[in-house]
Design a protein around this nucleic acid. Structure first.
Lengths: 119, 119
DNA sequence: TATTCTGGTTACTATTGGGTAACTACAAAT
DNA sequence: ATTTGTAGTTACCCAATAGTAACCAGAATA
């Protein structure tokens, strides 16, 4: 899932891309944002992601220090995820990607006017 | 290569990630930077990329309006790539990713002090 | 005449990613 | 006694991605 050749590169930029350069991670980070959120909520909000993949991505994000995982020893289990300082520091970058896209994306006729979740 | 579910999302952020959210594209955009560069040069500079994949990525970047391809009708052929306005506008985002990584990456002992290519 | 040069393309194969469904623990509610 | 709820994990399988090597044009060079 993470490409070792990227993560072990001696170019720090390449390593950064190795960490966050896939399609799910920016989406997940963006969904979490500044709040604390449970596994099931992320799963419900992010379209098309399977629990298996979500688990994997969350685990990697935690390993890479982008988010913190807080498991309450209850039954049924409850787990909350929130961004670490490093993860929070990444949010402005996602904002600038949004602005960039807004400015330069070729206009297309949207099927619905529903711009939900990532507003 | 591009995920249709992402590119056809009605969330503009998701679409943006569908466009540039993979490991090769940020690297390629970063390597091109503000210069005009030939196919062979990119291939030589970017580590581990195969010509096949490079071709595919460049084609998609062109389709998405991030770069311009200028083919000289010579023999042997010469093709130059350079970023479009949209592509150039993405460079500052890559810079902020570099800064973010520099600030937050967990320190690791580099095998070599060679930080070539993406400095 | 053979080789080199460039920017690819193609066919074939290996690797990986990702989807699905079943399963877990255990308590509370029905 | 059975269902519900949560946050996963596991096994199995298929589709997508990426790597490799061979091949192309056609002029210039040796």
């Amino acid at each position: 899932m993470r490409d070792d050749r990227f993560c072990n590169s001696n170019c720090p930029f390449t390593r950064a891309i190795g960490t966050i350069g896939n399609k799910w991670k920016p989406i997940i980070i963006n969904v979490i944002g500044t709040r604390s959120i449970r596994f099931g909520q992320i799963d419900a909000i992010v379209p098309h992601i399977s629990r298996k993949v979500l688990t994997e991505q969350l685990k990697e994000l935690e390993e890479d220090g982008l988010l913190e995982r807080l498991a309450y020893k209850e039954i049924p289990p409850r787990v909350e995820y929130k961004l670490s300082e490093k993860g929070l520091a990444f949010l402005p970058i996602l904002e600038s990607i949004k602005e960039w896209n807004l400015k330069y994306e070729v206009a297309l006729i949207p099927k619905e006017t529903d711009y939900s979740y990532a507003g």
